[in-house]
Each structure stands twice: as C-alpha cells, then as structure tokens.
C-alpha cells in the first residue's frame, strides 16, 4: 500500500535527518575553527546558507509539481506542491531571521535592499500569498488548478525580480560592499558547510514525506466520512 510505504520512508528519512543534524552540530560548534575577524557569529553561516539552498529547492519542486499537475491532474502532485511550498516558507523564514542576526554585528545594519536580500524577501511574500490562496480557496478540483497557476507564475517571477533589483541597485552605490564572501572558504569550513547542507537536505526530505503522509491520511479520512454518508468536517 502506497501510504504505508510512504510512512516507512518518512520514518527512515527522519532517523537519517536526526543523525545528520547531530553530525552537523558537532561540525559547526566543535570541529570548525573560529573565523578570525567575525568570531563566533560567523557560525550562523552554516545554517543560513543551507537553509537558503533548501528553500530555493523547495520552491523549485513546488513549481515543477504545479506544472506537472496541470498536465497530469494527479492529486499526489498537488499535495507535493503544497507540502514543498509550506516547508520552503519555513526555511525561507529561517534565512530571513538568521541573516539580520549575522548582518547587525558584521555590516552594522540589520537589513539592506540588496538584490539577494530583496529577492529572498519577495520570494517569501509570493509563497506566503500562495499558501494564503490555498487556505481561502474552496475545496474541489479547481483549487488545485488555481494554486498551480500561481505556483508557476510566482516562480517565473523570481529571476525577473532578481534582475530588476540588480539593475536598480547598480544605479546607486551599494550601501554595503560585499567582498567575495565564500570565494575563499578554508577547507574545514567548506567541509562543515557541506555537512550542514546534507543535514538540511535530509531534514527537508523528512519533513516533505511527513507532510505528504499527513495530507494523504486527511484524504483517507474524508473518504471514510463520505462512505459513511457523513459530511466531513471543515479542513483547517
């Protein structure tokens, strides 16, 4: 049965994610040496960058699933789009929270309207709106269609937003000069970063599978209600 196999997969992924996160924590707080100029606060980098990558991956999966849904109309793809958008918003929030915590002591400011920061914020806004739309649409097959259209439109907008802000910002002197950060990462640091990326990816997969299982169970419950000829309760 599909649901049971997915459930087992989610459990395995959770166990792996646990292990990977413990490993990542060891690397970040014990193995990797202190950064010379930034000090301890630099360690947030090992959570910030992998979260950013995972959130972009999640939104990309949402886009692909939405596109595939419009062609195949499979319920599973709609669930996948929703689940990955939800998790993407969580990781994107982590990025937007950890960023200023690092920026304040290093740049001296919480926020700057630079291309990368602004694009991430706009991305977050687009997918929060996407989830809000899903919450406000009435249940039915049209819901998946309409959500998929926004999922596609929102993702296509991201490169355009990035380009437009780069154009805009190069017209003015940037308030903060971002020297080639990440251009010369010391070997223990890049090792730690890799481990953290693997850990975040495992966490993402575990959460994604778990979320899909929950949604499929929800469908199953609705189905049982209908079989018993009782109106299913409103989904929250």
């Amino acid at each position: 049965m599909r649901l049971e196999r997915l459930h087992t997969a989610a459990n395995v992924a959770t166990a792996i994610a646990w292990g990977a996160i413990v490993w990542a924590l060891y690397m970040v707080f014990h193995f990797v040496p202190m950064e010379r100029t930034m000090g301890n606060v630099q360690r947030i980098f090992y959570f910030h960058v992998p979260s950013a990558m995972v959130s972009f991956l999640a939104f990309f999966i949402c886009f692909l699933a939405s596109l595939a849904y419009l062609f195949t109309r499979r319920r599973g793809l709609d669930i996948a789009a929703q689940a990955s958008a939800e998790i993407g918003v969580v990781f994107c929030s982590v990025v937007l929270i950890t960023g200023p915590i690092w920026a304040k002591p290093i740049w001296g400011i919480w926020w700057t309207w630079d291309a990368r920061l602004t694009t991430t914020l706009v991305l977050w806004l687009i997918y929060v709106a996407y989830l809000m739309l899903r919450a406000y649409l009435p249940e039915g097959s049209r819901k998946a269609n309409l959500a998929a259209v926004v999922g596609i439109l929102g993702f296509l907008d991201v490169p355009v937003v990035y380009m437009s802000i780069r154009w805009w910002r190069t017209q003015h002197p940037a308030p903060v000069i971002m020297g080639g950060k990440g251009s010369g990462l010391a070997p223990p640091m890049s090792q730690t970063l890799r481990v953290c990326m693997i850990a975040m990816l495992c966490l993402f997969i575990a959460l994604l599978l778990r979320r899909i299982v929950v949604e499929l169970l929800q469908d199953e419950v609705d189905h049982l209600y209908r079989e018993a000829d009782v109106a299913p309760p409103e989904r929250g």
């Binding site: 706009v122 709106a129 809000m132 649409l137 009435p138 907008d157 437009s164």
Partner: peptide
C-alpha cells in the same frame, strides 16, 4: 482570487510581490 473568500484582500496580496519589477 474571484474564487476565494476575501477576494478583495487576496488580489493585492498575490499581485504586489509579483509586480515588484
């Protein structure tokens, strides 16, 4: 957004991030 409850709110929430460029 015409299909949703709160359609008057939903349209600007969806539209404004996308028209940033």
């Amino acid at each position: 957004s015409a299909n949703t409850r709160l359609r008057e709110v939903m349209l600007p929430v969806l539209l404004f991030p996308i028209i940033v460029p």
